[in-house]
């Protein structure tokens, strides 16, 4: 049973039962101190465990993140790998632009 923000990984990872949640990584059950919400989401995920009908099942939980001004899901400083990825992406975009302009 997986409670997962990046539920799309399901396509390549094949998890048996997934409760999808649109919350930041690291806070899949809610923000600090939101005890009532943590309980609601945990119980919803456990219900998905009990009711999933077949392997690969995904259920999208309806809970909405209420802290749009909170950007603390981005670690500071960023991980070294992110700096590599950003550079690779920038290079890919630059190559595409050059090809398009050629």
């Amino acid at each position: 049973m997986v409670l997962n923000s990046i539920w799309a990984f399901q396509r390549i990872s094949g998890q048996p039962r997934v409760a999808a949640i649109e919350f930041p990584m690291g806070r899949a059950l809610g923000a600090v101190g939101e005890a009532k919400l943590h309980r609601e989401i945990l119980l919803a995920a456990l219900e998905v465990f009990e009711t999933a009908e077949e392997p690969g099942w995904v259920e999208h939980l309806p809970h909405r993140w209420q802290h749009d001004d909170d950007r603390t899901w981005l670690p500071d400083p960023p991980p070294p790998y992110l700096l590599i990825i950003r550079e690779k992406w920038r290079e890919m975009v630059e190559r595409s632009r050059k090809r398009a302009g050629a």
Binding site: G26, A28, G30, H38
Partner: peptide, 24 residues
């Protein structure tokens, strides 16, 4: 290095709900 860990260190139930499971 890829997440902000201070949230879970303030409240484990945000992503590691063992304390909440003990209540349940």
């Amino acid at each position: 290095l890829h997440i902000e860990t201070r949230h879970l260190l303030a409240d484990l139930d945000v992503c590691f709900p063992v304390p909440l499971l003990r209540e349940l």
